[in-house]
Design a protein around this nucleic acid. Structure first.
Lengths: 227, 227
DNA sequence: CTGACATCAAATGGATCCAATGCTCAAGAC
DNA sequence: GTCTTGAGCATTGGATCCATTTGATGTCAG
């Protein structure tokens, strides 16, 4: 394709508003933009060499992905959750992700399950927070890969997106002390998936999310720097 | 409802893209636009006396509300669900709406609960499908009114929106034969809400949605006229 | 010294014009 | 006769310019 000097974008769709969306999505998920931080259209437009119009479109896309919030005549901000909201989002995940897993599991191939184990090994091998975040996301979303029902898959993605920042802060807070629990849960999940046991897998998954939720509720300092 | 002049709405919010969004939202929820039907920007723009730009914005808003789907360079369509998707959406509702109800119930006022009973009486009094759809929606959304957690409340609304059309067809198919079941379920739900019994109310609600889902799965003809 | 109002700057919202992409239909070749 | 290919058209995507709204700052009155 055309050699993009600025961005390593894939010009698959060729759309320009897609470029902006990809850029902002990465920036938010990678933590370059903090929750509540304002996103000025003109600024982004100039930075990416586009007009303000595709930026507006991109902000709308990201809003529907749970990454930004738009207020009429007041502009866009990176999504920001309160303690109560974060708790609810995790409760939603507890109820929805086992459903998505149940949809996806029967269609998972052996090589994909193999890959799950590989990802988990990498998670156990690294002590870096960013590595964990990226691999953990890859791990779980891979288990949902064959859940193609858009309303469910889209909602799950939204919930992951809107909580990404708090997972990052949380991992920084607890350190690597209780990391073994996550590993145990992941391995139990992999085992259940290998056995194609939907009930067991759903239970492990729900427990995994619930335990994280309870853990999160013990760390209100996660929200301290938010306006 | 949408009779009279073209659009007698004056600028309540002042925003023009809001006007377009309101118009299209009503048109879709009222069944004037069928699922899968294409929405041409220019057409809507001319019809509402606006430019194409606010129409694009409105279509993006509606997409994030689960009412339309946008494909790049191909335009917008009214959301269309397959049998499998509809089933999944109802399973999502079974799991999420009891959560929303549990959030909202403690804050429900006595007059709001009173109003629930009034709405239910009206449902029982009318045999019209459109009346049922409007009142049933009002009934359930009223029980969730105090669930202000945006991710949860927004998702619930999305699920209701995307299934509105199929509820309409379904009600037309089954007629008023088993209408008494809905009434019984609603009244049990009202009673549990009055008693502030979250567990009971959640169970009735889940059963209410689940029974409808099973019923729906017995009527594949609902999807017959879809491409 | 404090509070309210007016004025100004900056950012968002909207309209018109132009470019690019996808679809349709017709013409030609195998 | 059918498949393919190219041209024309319809529709969406993007850029620039203009209007409107918000928020802030400064000034004047109490």
């Amino acid at each position: 394709m055309s050699g993009g000097a600025v961005e390593p974008i894939d010009a698959d769709t060729g759309a320009a508003s897609q470029r902006v969306a990809v850029h902002l999505r990465r920036a938010i998920l990678d933590g370059l933009l903090a929750p509540g931080q304002r996103i000025r259209q003109e600024e982004v437009a100039e930075q990416l060499g586009a007009s303000r119009l595709p930026v507006r479109e991109a902000l709308r896309m990201l809003e529907s992905e749970g990454l930004t919030e738009l207020e009429p005549n007041k502009g866009a901000r990176v999504i920001r959750l309160g303690a109560r909201e974060l708790d609810i989002v995790y409760q939603m995940r507890e109820r929805l992700e086992p459903l998505a897993l149940g949809e996806s599991m029967p269609a998972l191939t052996d090589s994909e399950i193999e890959r799950l184990a590989v990802i988990e090994h990498r998670i156990e091998a690294s002590a870096d927070v960013e590595d964990f975040l990226r691999l953990d996301r890859e791990f779980h979303l891979l288990t949902y890969r064959h859940c193609t029902t858009e309303p469910l898959a889209g909602t799950v993605i939204r919930l992951w997106n809107s909580t990404q920042h708090y997972r990052r802060v949380f991992m920084g807070v607890i350190g690597s002390a209780q990391r073994w629990i996550v590993h145990a849960e992941h391995n139990l999940l992999i085992d259940a998936v290998q056995r194609r046991d939907t009930v067991d897998a759903g239970r492990y998954l729900e427990g995994h999310i619930r335990r994280t939720r309870v853990e999160l509720s013990r760390h209100p300092e996660i929200f301290e720097d938010q306006g």
